[in-house]
Amino acid sequence: MKELRLPLSADEKRALRAGDAVLLSGTLYTARDCAHRRIFELLDADMPLPFALKDAFIYYAGPCPAPAGKASGSCGPTTSARMNAFAPRLLRLGLGGMIGKGEMSEEVRAALKECGGVYFAAIGGAGALYGNAVKRSECVAFPDLLSEAVYRFEVENFPLVVAIDSAGNSIYDRTSK
């Protein structure tokens, strides 16, 4: 299995093909529905964001509280399609890609292709496994959103499958049309 460390270079992203299984390590930022709305409000107001978008990867996820001795509680992916409206703009501002579960829209696919981004699928429902792969976690924005806040994760060997590659190929093409 291919092992990758974030940030990914343009060449590393280009080499990935839909259906490839990878183990991903490095820094991720969690964000889901509410956090995306807040990020868009900041962008619209020309205010600084809680993290630099350039080459960053967003993990569509909201963790359970961390038990004693762990960096994070269970933390698998949430349904990515709810973020269809947000992903293209962030990709065009430099976002390296996203991690979530399930198909995304044609607009997202086009933006990934245009920007050389990658969308990885994590295995939905495998919350304990992904939670244990989080080695460090820090809330970096919107703490009032609780589990929906933005957390900076240091992750080790996240098991992922390339869902939409930078050429626009999708693992869901075989089934969802």
């Binding site: 996820a61 909201g62 963790p63 359970c64 038990p67 509680g73 269970s74 933390c75 698998g76 949430t78 295995i123 939905g124 429902g125 495998a126 919350g127 304990a128 496994l129 939670g131 244990n132 589990s147």
Partner: peptide, 15 residues
Amino acid sequence: NRAIAARESMPVCQD
């Protein structure tokens, strides 16, 4: 994941 959750009394899914 199911085995990890059972062994460590962690939520199977974060939802």
